[in-house]
Write a protein that binds this DNA or RNA. Structure first.
Lengths: 278, 278
DNA sequence: TACTGTGAAGGCTTTCACAGCC
DNA sequence: GGCTGTGAAAGCCTTCACAGTA
């Protein structure tokens, strides 16, 4: 169990630590100096951004920290603190101007230019990722697909050709891919990752159940569905014990009371189907 | 933008706060009292568990904190601290007995009994989740599938019938579903969630881009792929700025040097394809 | 008046470093 | 000698509470 020499730091999806020297200074009208955005804040900014987009679609002009916080699932103090890292774009007594704040967050996250995405491993999940329309709409066009299965190489998904893994360096170079999604089985992941890195890809989202070793200039984040389920299972078990120790109850269908009407931000009508990644 | 009365706490995937009163006491030979496992530790225990499983398959009897930490992507101090929350199962001067530690973590996470899983929303992602074989192998058999699209209701995926969303309460009750995966479009998610909760489901993994409102006894975790990509994009942008300010370089394929051989724990041969969620 | 922006306080998590044990 | 288990220190992150402003 010793490791290869090019050991790097792993990405963990729910990363614990570290703040970020995020200078927003850029060509043209520079924003107030704004530095050191905490990692945790960056993740939430992405959420605020989406909610602001929805608010804008609904025609809202301004939003208070309380409102935006509620739909984003945080408390208003945290939201204000988060926004304070990118500058003072609010109006006291009023709130935030929706479109302007949207723009500022977009700029801070570096979303003013598109990032070409490659998906490697067109299995169940890879196929779903390749077919997901939402990435392109958010500035992440899926631009290349790879696998080694001869039955898959050559087919098109959403108009994109599946190519052989051996062509990763050439294709990614040609198309300027900057983000790679690794959706291969575990044993293949490191090899694929190395090829992506060799092709100049600097950011990798890893769905494979291994810790990828990368050089320091490459950023990895990990999404691990099995871990998510196990954390949930832990909470089920805890709850069950608490119940057993506390109010003894029947076992099946215990929760009962709760309004069964819809209550999402957009209303309550059913529309289950369609493309549903993310 | 006011909220429905049954507001609960949101789940955030990368949850920030809170430790957990995880008593391990149980019928039979009780383990040392072991309480208050931090949330962050629980998530990592799930990773250690998987790595221990792989080590066991490879025939390892013992493993040191350093080795297990490396393959899990953490440092050894953190690993030892994490393990100390569940008890003292290591042997000084030697390491941990692989099978015994595996068992202890399994017990702590409440994985000694199976949890039936329902997937709601059989779109791109839902289909991938439904077809993923890995859940069943880890004690999370996918037991029910739901959608409202008439073209989907009635078909089978991996031998499981897709049923109508309106039957969630009945079917989940009958089959003892304890975990629900919400993979619907945003607008449908809250309604579906309410039905799952009414059916007695206590844990929900939410892939929809909304914050679900649930009563306090229900646990929600959120997986948001768009957010993951945006966080990566932020790092790309940051890096690009640093580069522009520092060593001026060519733009395409800059990373270059790196061994292109495989180096995952299991070896380096290619085998890209097959079922590849998580 | 209503709401933002932010120092300060409090918690949680990670890291350090070393005592204790095999 | 080597490795685990763990107090203590340090670092992040969240929450509080209120000054400041449109």
């Amino acid at each position: 169990m010793t490791l290869p020499p090019h050991a790097g730091r792993p990405g963990t999806g729910a990363n614990g630590t570290g703040s970020i020297d995020g200078r927003a200074g850029r060509t043209g009208t520079a924003a107030p100096v704004t530095r050191a955005i905490p990692e945790a804040t960056v993740a939430r900014l992405a959420v605020y951004l989406r909610m602001l987009g929805e608010l804008a679609e609904q025609g809202a002009d301004t939003v208070s920290s309380e409102e935006l916080a509620t739909v984003s699932g945080v408390n208003s103090a945290k939201l204000r603190k988060d926004l304070s890292y990118i500058g003072s774009y609010g109006i006291r007594g009023v709130g935030y101007e929706v479109r302007s704040l949207h723009h500022q967050i977009e700029r801070t996250l570096g979303l003013d230019e598109q990032q070409a995405v490659a998906v490697v491993g067109i299995g169940n999940l890879g196929h779903a990722l390749a077919g997901y329309g939402g990435f392109g709409g958010r500035g992440f066009p899926v631009t290349a697909l790879f696998d080694i299965d001869p039955d898959l190489v050559g087919i098109h998904i959403n108009g994109i050709l599946v190519e052989h893994v051996r062509d990763i360096p050439r294709v990614c170079g040609e198309r300027g891919v900057t983000i790679g999604l690794v959706a291969t089985p575990g044993p293949a992941a490191q090899s694929v990752c190395d090829q992506l890195v060799a092709a100049g890809v600097r950011c990798i989202l890893n769905f494979a159940p291994v810790v990828l070793q990368v050089p320091p200039q490459v950023e990895v984040r990990k999404v691990d569905l099995a871990v998510e389920l196990q954390v949930l299972a832990f909470h089920v078990a805890r709850r069950r014990e608490a119940e057993a120790a506390g109010v003894l109850e029947g076992s099946a269908a215990p929760v009962a009371a709760l309004p069964t009407n819809g209550s999402g931000p957009t209303g309550g009508h059913e529309a289950v189907n369609g493309t549903a990644v993310s």
